[in-house]
Amino acid sequence: MTAPSAPGGSRTAALPRLLAAALALLAAAGLTSCSAAEAEPSAPAVARFTQNGVTVTLAVAGWKDAKGTLTATFTPTEAGYHLYSTDLPAEGVEGVGRPTSVTVAGGLAADGPAAADAEVLRINLPGVDSAVPVYPDGPVMLTLPVRAENPGSTSAGTAKALISYASCNTEEGCNIPVMDRPVILNITGNALTFP
């Protein structure tokens, strides 16, 4: 009877050593990943917020010579929701919908129109005579080329990205629109960042 328990006992005694070794390896891997991410100098500036059924992620890329690109990714928080096209009139179609948009103010100016990464669909809604332009259900990214208003300045300044959208589901209706929600950006000669 004592012989069978001895091997099991030795396995049980070895288990804490194996767990400790595994945890040490995981910790080392985690530290390596974190230090690599922190050391990455070219990571773009990012800001994020969630409001009225959509998470908006803003990023800055390619900032050079006081010009760069501002992207805004609009992701509905629930499946089956779409966003309206940037081409939708500001008041919607027969009052339905609000355009998805990102504009800038303050120390930044648009250096061209915003472009979307999704095709525009035209859907018919009950009670609306005209087709409404929307993006397919799910996320859509707008890309806006931007430039500093005062590119020769070496002093820091601020600007705002103004974010607007409304998300809707053809069966459940729409969330309350978000209109011109400001997101602050800091401008320096070599960087455009979020505080």
Rank of each mutant, 00 (worst) to 15 (best):
M1P: 07
M1D: 11
A3H: 10
P4E: 05
S5D: 09
S10N: 08
R11A: 00
R17F: 13
R17G: 13
L19E: 11
A20Q: 08
L26M: 07
A28N: 03
A29H: 00
L31G: 10
T32Q: 06
S33K: 10
A36C: 01
A39N: 11
E40G: 01
A47E: 14
R48L: 12
F49W: 11
T55W: 11
T57K: 12
T57P: 06
A59M: 13
A59W: 08
A61G: 15
K67Y: 01
T69N: 11
P76Q: 14
T77F: 06
T86N: 14
P89F: 08
A90R: 15
E91R: 08
E94A: 15
V96H: 11
V104E: 08
G106Y: 03
G106F: 03
G106R: 03
G107T: 10
A115L: 10
D117N: 14
P126K: 08
V128G: 06
V134Y: 02
G138P: 10
P139F: 05
M141I: 05
L142M: 06
T143R: 10
R147Y: 04
A148W: 00
E149L: 15
E149N: 15
A156M: 11
K160D: 11
L162Q: 09
I163A: 02
A166F: 00
S167V: 09
T170G: 03
P177F: 00
M179D: 11
D180Q: 14
D180R: 13
V183A: 11
L185W: 03
N186R: 14
F194N: 08
F194V: 08
